[in-house]
């Protein structure tokens, strides 16, 4: 079962290594990991998509909470989260293919961010599932290079994961 876990941590050097170390040490598998600073510069937010059964995920949450620099851990259920991933892709595209590709870009909600005589560079931000479909559609044109971030997620509605000031 895949779960999305949001972790608020002290924005210190070495925190990420403690967290990734914990995952490998305890045998938890990470699908994706994304980290960035929050509106409070002393706090970073890490989003991890991990795979595991109920027991593993409960242990994972508890072990994360034991780390001194972890402020808050929350596992988000599928129904309550808005998740996004960013993909940048460089596609082989001669001038005659450009319009076909542009149609796909429009329909899928992507953007063209760079052009050369032989390539097009595209940007898309959406769910992991949507990105997989997009990849499928553009693959026949020839992917030269592809970069993806890990998933980041936020709760729907007014709920938030933050610490009381």
């Amino acid at each position: 079962m895949k779960r999305t876990i949001s972790i608020l941590v002290e924005n210190h050097a070495g925190v990420l290594s403690r967290i990734s170390g914990l995952f490998s040490r305890r045998g938890f598998n990470i699908d994706s990991l994304a980290v960035g600073v929050t509106d409070d510069p002393s706090i970073s937010r890490i989003t991890i998509v991990a795979d595991g059964n109920e027991y593993t995920l409960e242990q994972l949450e508890k072990q994360l909470n034991k780390l001194i620099e972890v402020i808050k851990v929350k596992t988000l259920s599928k129904d309550e989260l808005l998740a996004r991933e960013l993909m940048l892709v460089k596609l082989s595209a001669t001038p005659e293919k450009r319009s076909e590709i542009t149609t796909i870009v429009d329909v899928m909600g992507a953007k063209i961010i760079d052009l050369s005589l032989t390539t097009m560079t595209l940007e898309i931000s959406n769910t992991n599932f949507h990105l997989a479909r997009f990849e499928e559609l553009i693959k026949p044109y020839g992917i030269i290079e592809m970069v993806r971030t890990g998933t980041i997620a936020i709760q729907k509605g007014a709920d938030s994961i933050s610490i009381k000031k």
């Binding site: 027991y55 409960e58 242990q59 508890k62 072990q63 909470n65 034991k66």
Partner: peptide, 8 residues
């Protein structure tokens, strides 16, 4: 005292 021990 350690919540992580419970259920481990």
């Amino acid at each position: 005292i350690d919540p992580a021990e419970i259920g481990k």
